[in-house]
Design a protein around this nucleic acid. Structure first.
Lengths: 104, 104
DNA sequence: TTTTCATATAAAATTATTTTCATATGTTAA
DNA sequence: TTAACATATGAAAATAATTTTATATGAAAA
C-alpha cells in the first residue's frame, strides 16, 4: 500500500477491496474488537489485521485498547455518507449494466 | 481489470485510480470526446482509451459516436453524488490525519 | 477507393496489491 | 515472572493492475 500520498483516490482505494469494504461497513454500525471482526467475517487473523492496518493508516478507522482487546471504530461520519452514496450508485449502475452494452 | 464480477467495490476500484477519477470528474461537468479528454488531461492516447474502456465496461460512463468523434458522458447522476461524498470525506479524513496518529 | 483522422486494442513490460505463513509484541491472568 | 491471549508485523508467494509500444479498425474527407 502506498501510504505517503494522501488524497481522495486513496479513500476509494481502501473501499475497493471487498474485505476492507465489509470491515468498514461493519464498523459503520458498531465499534468492534479485532476478534469481533474476525468472528463476523470468518477470515484469518493476519489478513484482518493487515486490512485494519490499511484502514487505520489511511485514516478511515481509529483504534484504542480496551483491556485485552483493541477496539476499532469508523473515524468520521462523512464515511457513512460515502458508503450510502456508494451503495446507491452501485444499485443504479447495476441496473444500467443489466440492460445496456457495458461489459460486452 | 476483473470485469466479470459487478458490484459496489468495483465502482470504488474505478475511482481509486487517479487518472480514471480525473476523467470522471471532467465528465461530471460536461460530455467530452476522447480527444477533448486527452487535451484536458495531457496524457497519452492509449492510456486514456484504456481508462475509458475500464469506466465504460464497468458502467460508469456511456459513449456514442458523433461524426468523427466518440463522445463520453457520465452514466448516472448518482455518481455525481458519490463524487461529492468522496470529496467531502476526503477533506475530513485529511484533517483527521494531519493531527492524529495515522501513517505513523 | 485511397488517405486521413480519431479511437481502440493486443501484448509486453513494469509496478502494485493481496494473501499466506511464520513469528514478534504487549497485556493480562495465574 | 511465566503462561496464555489478542493483535501486529515482516517477508515470501501469488495475483492483479497499470503503462507503454506497436498496430488495428472504422468513419469520413479527398
Amino acid at each position: 500500500m502506498l501510504l505517503n500520498e494522501i488524497g481522495e483516490a486513496n479513500i476509494y482505494k481502501m473501499l475497493s477491496d471487498e474485505t476492507r469494504l465489509k470491515i468498514l461497513k461493519l464498523l459503520s454500525s458498531e465499534s468492534l474488537s479485532v476478534s469481533g471482526i474476525i468472528n463476523k467475517m470468518g477470515m484469518d487473523q493476519p489478513l484482518i489485521s493487515h486490512k485494519l492496518k490499511d484502514l487505520r493508516e489511511n485514516g478511515l478507522v481509529i483504534s484504542y485498547r480496551s483491556g485485552k482487546n483493541i477496539i476499532y471504530k469508523i473515524s468520521d461520519d462523512s464515511l457513512r455518507n460515502l458508503l450510502r452514496a456508494g451503495s446507491e450508485a452501485g444499485k443504479k449502475i447495476e441496473r444500467i449494466c443489466k440492460c445496456a452494452e457495458c461489459d460486452e
